[in-house]
């Protein structure tokens, strides 16, 4: 199963939850909310290159 990194550029919105749920049926999805700055940038870069697929939402 692919690892997908789902970046929320501006936090959750009306449709992000539904898409994350739908994608989770086919991928191992990790969600990072960039608006909350919960992940240091160096760790984020590692995650960007460690994942198989990436979506900036």
């Amino acid at each position: 199963m692919d690892k997908m990194l789902f970046l929320l550029n501006d936090g959750p919105d009306a449709s992000s939850g539904a898409w994350i749920e739908a994608l989770s049926r086919n991928c191992e999805v990790e969600v990072i909310d960039l608006a909350r700055k919960e992940v240091p940038y160096d760790a984020l870069v590692d995650k960007i290159f460690a994942c198989d697929k990436l979506i900036s939402w």
Binding site: N9, L34, P40, Y41, D42, L44, V45, D46, I48
Partner: peptide, 15 residues
């Protein structure tokens, strides 16, 4: 997202 662009870019370069 200027802060994120700058921060991610610099972190990527550092690696």
């Amino acid at each position: 997202h200027a802060d994120q662009v700058v921060g991610i870019c610099r972190a990527a370069l550092a690696k």
